[in-house]
């Protein structure tokens, strides 16, 4: 997937942090990944989860660029400078 629009300006990855109401860590993991996929991200991973009674504190990540990929923000910055 080639990042477009504002997403292409993200240097490497987008982290989403929140508290999910769920009944187990397993459910929390599944919900976290599903949340990111529902937002249209494919390269996602759960960075952190801690479950306690009411739910889970999570940090879930979507990589926009892995190292070695074609970083659109390089071109966009260049374009911006030229336009300026």
């Amino acid at each position: 997937m080639v990042a477009q629009g504002v997403l292409s300006r993200i240097m490497d990855a987008l982290d989403l942090e929140t508290f999910l109401v769920c009944s187990s860590e397993e459910e929390g993991k599944e919900l976290a990944i599903r949340l990111m996929k529902s937002l249209g991200f494919q390269d996602v991973d759960l960075v952190f989860i801690r479950f306690g009674g009411p739910g889970a504190r999570i940090r879930v990540r979507a990589y926009i660029y892995r190292p070695g990929q074609d970083y659109a923000w390089v071109r966009q910055i260049d374009d911006g400078e030229k336009r300026g």
Binding site: F19, V21, G52, G53, P54, G55, R57
Partner: peptide, 10 residues
């Protein structure tokens, strides 16, 4: 109440 339960768990 939802926040209190989170804080108790933490």
């Amino acid at each position: 109440i939802a926040h209190i339960k989170v804080c108790e768990a933490w």
